[in-house]
Design a binder for these strands. Structure first.
Lengths: 153, 153
DNA sequence: GCGGTTTGGTTGAACATTCAACCATCGGGG
DNA sequence: CCCCGATGGTTGAATGTTCAACCAAACCGC
């Protein structure tokens, strides 16, 4: 037997709607800026960032998928595109014959280096400039709590 | 001449990463639950919700696009699908021969009513249950500030 | 080392979104 | 009244994402 639905009260409704709108508009804006200035969607930028921060600028496909918050299938398609663009290369993994290693090419690194300043400026303008230092701190705690809660369960 | 990039300091980095992860995982989770339980993506759910709350359960396409945070093109495609599913119907606008009115069918309303409890439960479980009342309040203020900032500029 | 399960990764089809081009109508200024 | 720019909406192609099916290699127990 089903328990009664715990509906949202008016305050929660308002919070949820505001959150939905804000995160949608923020992401849309950053995504469009990145596409306009660097010709890639935010998800692809994330992949390049993760690779650039990995030792040797390379990662196993699975680890890269995890780091970039992507499904393996999605990553597979994405890396195929990034490879076609010359920004990423694939190599066989020496220790596991099933494995593939994605590695950031010099050209990919250069593209990322060119894209980063504009994107960071966008994040600052659209997010941090609007919030007080206290709010930034609150947002960090809230986000970390949520991420823990979601991945923990 | 370009000004120096205002890079993110370590605290800001951490906040931005946490926010990215949390909002991505939250939305992915809710989206997958909605798809599994009701066979529609979150964006389509939003369209049905907006229609259900409009007077007469109908809206002009443009207003609906605005309300659902969608481009007109996207909405056009989406409504075509929703119409094929029998959840929405299109009618000509009597006062503007260019216009189209989208209206929620009874079947669409029933589908929405069936989907809502599960979805709301998901929002509560994945979002509100993880946060303290103070944090919920903070999140609301932050989100409203951001939305204002983004749509204002 | 054999057979079954799990893991790593890819593939193709279905679906969703974006972008630019397009058509029709509306509305305002000569 | 006519023209012209702005508005409302759709379309098709290109691009991304998801889902399920699949293959191969690794791991595990015996």
């Amino acid at each position: 037997m089903a328990a009664m639905t715990r509906w949202l009260d008016p305050d929660e409704q308002r919070t949820w709607r505001a959150y939905l709108t804000a995160s949608r508009v923020l992401m849309d804006t950053l995504d469009r800026e990145l596409q306009r200035d660097s010709g890639m969607p935010h998800a692809y930028y994330e992949i390049l960032v993760q690779l650039s921060e990995a030792p040797g600028r390379q990662l196993r496909m699975s680890q890269l998928a995890q780091a970039a918050g992507s499904s393996r299938s999605r990553l597979s398609h994405a890396v195929a595109r990034l490879e076609a663009a010359g920004w990423v290369r694939r190599e066989d993994c020496p220790t596991d014959r099933r494995g593939q290693i994605a590695l950031l090419t010099d050209e990919g690194f250069a593209t990322l280096a060119a894209a980063a300043p504009g994107h960071v400026e966008g994040v600052r303008r659209h997010l941090f400039d609007a919030l007080s230092p206290a709010q930034v701190d609150q947002l960090r705690r809230i986000s970390e709590t949520l991420a823990d809660h979601l991945t923990g369960s």
